[in-house]
């Protein structure tokens, strides 16, 4: 096999090897908990600083946190609802429409890569 198709993690570039940590079992949970901790810390800091927003509601404790959380949930469920109505097969606009088409490989580096190998 050629050198650019690493068989094991050891053949990866250094930065890539470092990043494989995220795929280790349990890493996801750790990240999630770290994020939770950071959020909690932010909430504490939010208590301490003085705020003078244009609207009163901006100065309420944890306003942005709650707003952000709820917004995100709204986006996800809104999107799911939209998908229910708007989803179509890829050939909806015909078999030769742009949506159906793969990017022409001869304009990518993929084929050159194959040539190198």
């Amino acid at each position: 096999m050629s050198d650019h198709r690493p068989a094991t993690d050891d053949d990866l570039p250094a930065l890539g090897r470092l990043l494989t940590w995220v795929d280790r079992p349990g890493s996801g949970t750790k990240l999630f908990r770290a994020l939770g901790g950071f959020c909690a810390a932010l909430l504490v800091i939010d208590l301490l600083i003085s705020k003078h927003g244009h609207f009163h509601i901006e100065d309420v404790w944890a306003f942005y946190g709650v707003y952000g959380f709820l917004s995100f949930v709204c986006v996800i469920y809104g999107a799911k609802t939209l998908r229910f109505f708007a989803k179509r097969n890829e050939d909806y606009y015909g078999a030769q429409a742009i949506d159906r088409e793969d990017y022409p490989l001869d304009q990518t580096g993929v084929t050159k890569e194959a040539d190198d190998a």
């Binding site: 994020l35 909430l43 939010d46 600083i49 927003g53 942005y64 946190g65 952000g68 995100f72």
Partner: peptide, 16 residues
């Protein structure tokens, strides 16, 4: 206030 507010917004969204 701005930095913390923005971080709160984004991090809680990330949390979501």
């Amino acid at each position: 206030a701005h930095v913390v507010g923005q971080l709160l917004l984004l991090c809680f969204a990330l949390l979501a």
